[in-house]
Structure formats: C-alpha cells, structure tokens
C-alpha cells in the first residue's frame, strides 16, 4: 500500500510536468492546427537555461531557484516566438504537412545546436531549490515532488486566468476559432500567434526546469521522450483542449509510473504509445475533445 501511494505521488509529479508540456502542444494546435514537434526541444532549452542561471545564483535558495526558473521561462518564450517567426510564419499559407515537416526539422536543428552549444555529454543539474525528504506512514515524500506539483498548479492557474479572463487570452480563443473573423475584429492575428507560442514555450521551459530539478541530469536530447509522451497526453486529452491536455498529462504520468514500478517496467514506453493508438482508434477527439469536422 505504501508503495502504491509512493508511486502515485511520483506519478502525479511526473504527470504535472507532462501537463505543462502538453499544454504547449495544444495551445499551438489551437491557433495554427499543427503539432509543433520542436516544442520538446524548447523544453530541453529551458532545462539548460535553468541550469546556467541556476549555477550563477549559487543554488539551494528559493529566491535563486525562482529566478532561474523565471529566467528560463522568459528565454524560452523568446525562443518560441523566434522559431515561429522564422520557421512557421513564412509557411502560413502552405499546407499543414509542410509546416509539420518543418517543425521536425526545427526540432533536429535545436537538438544539434544544443550539442554544439552545451556539449553532447550529460551534465549534472545544480540544486537550484532547497530539497528535503520526509516520511509519513512509511511513505517517503520528497519536497521536490511537492515543489513540482505546487509550481505546476500555480502556472496552470495563471494560464487559466490569462486565457479566460484577459483580452489577449480571449483574442487567442478567437484566433483559434477563426483567423479571418478575428482579423476582421481588428485583432492582429500574427501578434496573437506570437503570444501563444511565447506562453506555450514558457510553460515548456518551466517543465524543463522542474524536470531537471527532479531528475538532475541534462543533455541535448532531454526533451525527446518527455516531449513525445506529452504529445500523446495532448492527444489523449483532446488536442486543442487545455483542460484535456492537463488531464492527459496527469493520467499518463500516473500510468507510466505505475507500469515502471511493476514487473513490466521495460514496457513503459510501449504502453504510452499503445494508449495513443487506442485513443486514435476509438476516441480520436480525445477524452475531453468534441468530435467535429475539420474546417477547410
């Protein structure tokens, strides 16, 4: 029993980070109707940014860790906006397949740039935030998991406020619904798309920072598996649906951790992708998505 609780805590913590990444996929899909496969490498860049700022902050303090995370988020928001402007915006009128393949190209570019800039060897992530463990009823709880979940909840709350309560968030939803109608309202759609990339990338950077804080080892391919898993999470929850992405992330984190803790642990990734196949077969709109014909 204690072990199950232990695994669940672990799963929720990993799932929270998947949720943060998955929201970036879903936000971008919402406004541009394509999967930004470079998103997972923005996550990686976020981890490195957190690492470099974290090292300078001395580490181990709340203020220092928070600054490192916010710096990573700001840097990656910029990176996401630049990627969109340079790689995707020129392809706005092209087919979605062209953009999708470009996204895979950008992903490879970022991974190789990561090797060039940060080196190919994995590096240890510093203790950017204070960390302790405590035991309750045979369950060992790491303060890291609580930090991960706490930060995630705060970030999701902030995102919900932006998307539902602010003018720019309402404009994001308007653009997601219909670019032309949004433009006819005077909404500068390109600027709103930039904001969307910035927001999604900042969340990916936060996830990258938290990921490296929980699993303190960083390399240029860090984003590949969490990115793919979060993509599955976004589809599982219903692509384009923010709540769905968060739910999908959480679910996948828990499922994955439970499988990992069982004797079928070598099948963890297979389970994730079998889940993707099952969703696509039986509920292609995802758990919270509504089935609707794609507008042309």
């Amino acid at each position: 029993m204690a072990e199950l609780v232990q695994q669940l805590i672990n799963g929720v913590s990993v799932g929270a980070m998947y949720a943060l990444i998955a929201i970036g996929y879903t936000l971008v899909y919402g406004v541009l109707r394509f999967i930004n496969f470079a998103h997972s490498d923005v996550f990686m860049a976020g981890a490195y940014a957190g690492l470099h700022v974290g090292q300078r902050m001395g580490g181990g303090s709340w203020a220092g860790g928070l600054v490192a995370m916010l710096a990573a988020m700001a840097a990656c928001a910029g990176l996401g906006i630049v990627i969109e402007r340079l790689a995707y915006k020129p392809l706005r009128e092209r087919s979605k397949l062209t953009v999708l393949i470009t996204a895979i190209g950008v992903s490879m570019l970022l991974q190789n740039l990561g090797q060039l800039v940060f080196g190919a060897t994995p590096v240890a992530f510093p203790e950017t935030l204070p960390a302790t463990t405590f035991t309750a009823g045979g369950v060992v709880v790491s303060s890291k998991d609580m930090v991960v979940v706490g930060f995630t909840v705060a970030l999701l709350g902030a995102l919900e406020f932006v998307v539902l309560r602010t003018k720019v968030g309402t404009a994001m939803r308007a653009v997601a619904h219909n670019h032309q109608a949004a433009a006819l309202m005077g909404i500068p759609t390109n600027r709103i798309i930039s904001v969307t990339f910035g927001l999604g990338s900042a969340l990916a950077a936060a996830a990258g920072f938290l990921w490296a804080y929980k699993f303190p080892r960083v390399d240029p391919y860090l984003g590949v598996m969490p990115g793919l898993t979060a993509f599955v999470a976004a589809v599982l929850g219903g692509i384009g649906n923010i709540t769905g992405a968060a739910l999908g992330g959480l679910l996948l984190g828990v499922i994955e951790t439970l499988v990992k803790g069982s004797r079928w642990s070598t099948w963890t990734e297979a389970v994730t992708f079998v889940l993707l196949i099952l969703v696509l077969l039986f509920r292609p709109a995802g758990l919270l998505g509504r089935a609707q014909a794609e507008k042309v």
Binding site: T170, A171, R173, A174, H177, A182
Partner: peptide, 15 residues
C-alpha cells in the same frame, strides 16, 4: 463567423 466558443459578451468585446 461568430466565435461560437466565446460568450456573446466576449464576442462583442472582441469587436
């Protein structure tokens, strides 16, 4: 082309 995912008031505010 109303924003069917937005409320009536949000539509008007976008205008």
């Amino acid at each position: 082309m109303v924003f069917s995912n937005l409320t009536v008031m949000e539509n008007l505010r976008m205008g």
